[in-house]
């Protein structure tokens, strides 16, 4: 929404997972402890995001995308380095709550209960974000500023404050996602590296600035990769890049990227 290509998002995601290792430790957490860890992860990473915005990103909003990309890549390296100092460089594991460790049978298939929970939480947050953007004054202000920051100021919006809060919110969500993914992966400081490229692919395919586009794109990318694993294993891990290439060739602005703004003239 802010037009920021934020490479540091991957490292913030990893910090969320690392916070989970500190809060939960090696035990099987109860549900309340796990929820507490998720909240702590979101708050810690949200605050870290606010610091990053205030000290670096805010100075670069008016610059070009390359400068922003390089700056956020530098932040990624700094955060990863600091994370290694704090949490060490050995991979760690986090247990999910025991009650969620079994399988659920859906249409004859056994699916991990925790994976289903992740899908449900993802859907809840997607709906929440949609409502925030389309049904609240804050969302209205975000959309206005995303289109025209100077005009937003001219109608009385404190655009720096709104962008600060949006960056903090995005970071908090990255932290929350890091905590939630922690039980399913090996947690280390560079955990976010593999996810950030896939996330960029999702955003590019969906169209920059379009939450709905990203939602559709994420399902498209996920299903395509799953089909590739099942039927074309040699393409596994490449389907993101193939989809990005196809979309950029056929529809360079992405599935839903700013089509309405373009139609305004």
């Amino acid at each position: 929404m802010l037009g920021v290509l934020n490479f540091a998002h991957g490292s913030l995601f990893a910090v969320g997972a690392l916070v989970a290792t500190s809060v939960i430790g090696t035990v099987f957490p109860s549900i309340p402890v796990f929820i507490g860890a998720a909240l702590v992860g979101a708050v810690v990473v949200g605050v870290l995001g606010l610091v990053v915005e205030r000290t670096v990103v805010r100075r670069l909003y008016r610059g070009d995308h390359i400068t922003m990309l390089l700056a956020t890549f530098a932040i990624l390296l700094i955060v990863e380095g600091a994370s290694e100092l704090l949490w060490g460089d050995s991979p760690a594991t986090v247990n999910q709550p025991k009650v969620l460790s079994g399988n659920v049978h859906v249409l004859g298939a056994a699916l991990p209960a925790y994976s289903i929970l992740l899908v449900v939480i993802g859907a809840v947050f997607a709906v929440g974000l949609f409502l925030l953007l389309n049904r609240s004054r804050f969302g209205r202000d975000i959309k206005a500023i995303a289109q025209d920051q100077v005009m937003g100021e001219a109608v009385g919006l404190n655009t720096k404050r709104v962008m600060f809060l949006v960056f903090g919110l995005g970071s908090a969500l990255a932290g929350l996602a890091g905590v939630l993914i922690a039980p399913t992966v090996s947690v280390s400081a560079n955990l976010g590296d593999s996810y950030i490229l896939e996330s960029f692919a999702v955003v590019i395919i969906g169209g920059l600035g379009s939450i709905t586009g990203s939602l559709i794109s994420s399902i498209l990318v996920g299903v395509t990769e799953a089909l590739a694993v099942a039927y074309f294993p040699f393409l596994s891990g490449f389907t993101f890049y193939i989809l990005v290439a196809v979309v950029l060739l056929v529809r360079p602005r992405g599935l839903l990227g700013n089509a309405r703004i373009g139609a305004a003239a």
């Binding site: 209205r140 202000d141 959309k143 995303a146 289109q147 919006l157 703004i261 305004a264």
Partner: peptide
């Protein structure tokens, strides 16, 4: 603000 309705443009 083209992504907002006219009512939202006024209210903002």
């Amino acid at each position: 603000f083209t992504r907002l309705t006219v009512a939202e443009n006024l209210d903002i």
